[in-house]
Design a binder for these strands. Structure first.
Lengths: 345, 345
DNA sequence: CCCGCATCTGACAACGTTGTCCAGGCTCTA
DNA sequence: TAGAGCCTGGACAACGTTGTCAGATGCGGG
């Protein structure tokens, strides 16, 4: 009895199904399916009757059931570090744009730079049977993804390479960018140049540090230990690191900032001290051109990074991609003033 | 024959199922389900055998099937305007944070300010059977959501109210914020104050314009038509609008900018002209404090907006929420210099 | 020694959709 | 008018999981 009630009249909270629509329109189940999916083989009159029933009941196809049946979900996952970081907005948007062009939805989550949370998220997405994954890795061991990749989950890493597995990677040329940026400071007469960056366990941070060292070595300048600050991440510590470098008996005359957040803080510190200090930052920041002086940066194209990664993902899904590759996008030095200041004794 | 092969040994691209795991472990299907879901009633020995089979096969539960069976998806949808807009990063992140705390995944998409695309996206999310929706509306008619809401999809609108339907809304006090901002300029001696904002069909834009008019009226200042520019959105046009206002025989001495993008462009124009012009902008912008002068803004708390909305969403899902409400969060005037400049003839 | 009870396990149906396949009715031609 | 062929519509199984329910097993007590 209750059974019948449930079938014939859908209760509040129970969505109507194709069966309900079929009953109301007086047709078979498959005919409704055909109408919903625009398949041929339905007379205009029948189609109209079905459409009316759909509208009357407020029917909406249940994609979960569809996915179960068809095997593909038309959705991809994006795991990044923090959506609030202005660097990831354009990246995320670019990925979504490509996904949309392929008729796929984007599911995303933030790892908050925690490898465990990254893994948890990735596996949750795999359980959802996303067709593919774009991952900005927080951890450095991604062997847990091997069964998934083997099972056909397309995977592309962005911004940092995968650990312990062979997979597609799209990144910016952190090493080259940092080297160019530091060389730029050297070219403007600086010799005592500081470097403030993130933990070296993060690939990009390590590469940028390597670029800094390379540029200094190219210029024949030995690097003093207290010119480098690694692993600082919160504004407080960056501030202290910068202040230390800029004080003492032989302070640095220029600073290379390892990422956007560091740059912003260093700009603040310099502004407060009054005495001009040269600065080049990695990552562009908004309004950098309006500061005085404008902030010279090594810019990476976040949108292009995302677009490239998503493109590659869908090419994996097409089957048109075979071997994993490592793609490195060039960076661009944008001079705005702060990087061209001469050393002030 | 092929059937048997497919069942006993999963091919590449065919994920193992609980059935496969059960066969390998020599137990029943339901026992595997119990182990996977941590349900009681399984002896440690059996559990170990099942776990081994799971690891050996690389099994991962298929959540699509699970969703189909259980009815709940543990995922919510977020539809916003543009992820690349710095205003939406923190909002999106806050929503995700709350979702995560409730064990739900976040699926999101951008409407690009296009009502049709918004509807398309929302309905796609409903077809996925998301448990709830957080929507930053682009359109002004949301009656298409009625059947969904009736069917139990929790829904909260953010930043702008829903059109034609009764639903939860969380927004900033655009009217009050704009009125305060403009009053602030009046208090510093300005009478000829310009307003540059988005299309009035966007609720927030209309409210801010209303706030501007109210403040002017409170001060007994009649507003000249050419002090207002509405509907401009791209930098080019904002630039032209600002330049027009600032030229002529009786140029404005202060500008109120209707949103973050407008503010940035106006800052540029003012910087180029050399002559100081007072400015208050709606929405905070990064580095606003480092410009000279610092940019005075009416700040809204994007993260709080997102958090509040998501909280309400999950309370709807708990069933602890009955009547739709309209929640308005206060804005905060942050004085940094640009809004305190006196009128310069 | 047998019964009852508690504990553990498995068979089966159901979730809502789509693919396969067949039946029935129609049209067109000889 | 009968037969062939086409077109439309529908019955049924399958996707992989979970809830229900009943069966099997082991243990202790009478």
């Amino acid at each position: 009895m209750a059974e019948t009630a449930r079938r014939t009249e859908s209760r509040y909270g129970n969505r109507p199904t194709m069966k309900d629509v079929a009953a109301r329109a007086g047709v078979g189940l498959k005919t409704v399916s055909r109408v919903v999916n625009g398949e041929p083989g339905v007379t205009p009159d029948t189609e109209r009757r079905v459409q009316e029933a759909i509208d009357a009941l407020g029917f909406r196809r249940n994609d979960s059931a569809r996915v179960l049946r068809k095997g593909r979900t038309a959705s991809i996952g994006l795991v990044l570090e923090d959506l609030a970081d202005p660097f990831y907005g354009p990246l995320s948007r670019a990925v979504e744009e490509v996904a949309r062009a392929h008729g796929a939805l984007l599911i995303n989550g933030s790892s908050a730079e925690d490898p465990e949370r990254e893994q948890e998220l990735v596996l949750a997405l795999c359980a959802r049977r996303v067709d593919g994954l774009v991952v900005i890795p927080a951890g450095d061991d991604h062997r847990y993804l091997e069964p998934e990749i083997k099972a056909g989950v397309a995977t592309v890493f962005v911004d940092r390479p995968a650990g312990q597995i062979d997979a597609d990677v799209v990144l910016s040329d952190s090493f080259g960018g940092a080297r160019d940026g530091v060389a730029h400071l050297v070219a403007h007469g600086h010799r005592r140049i500081g470097f403030i960056g993130d933990m070296p366990r993060i690939h990009t941070a390590a590469e940028r540090l390597r670029g800094y060292r390379a540029a200094m070595e190219d210029a024949g300048i030995p690097v003093a230990d207290d010119w480098m600050s690694l692993g600082v991440t919160d504004p407080q510590r960056v501030r202290r690191a910068a202040e230390t470098m800029l004080s003492g008996t032989s302070p640095v005359t220029a600073v290379f900032a390892g990422n956007n957040r560091v740059t912003v803080t260093v700009v603040r510190v310099i502004a407060e001290r009054g005495r001009p200090v040269a600065l080049v930052g990695f990552d562009d920041i908004e309004l950098a051109d309006l500061l005085q002086p404008g902030v010279t940066v090594v810019a990476q194209d976040a949108a292009q990074l995302g677009r490239t990664a998503a493109d590659r993902l869908f090419r994996q899904l097409d089957g048109s991609l075979l071997r994993p590759e490592r793609i490195e996008l060039p960076t661009r030095l944008i001079t705005r003033g702060s990087g061209e200041l001469p050393p002030s004794a």
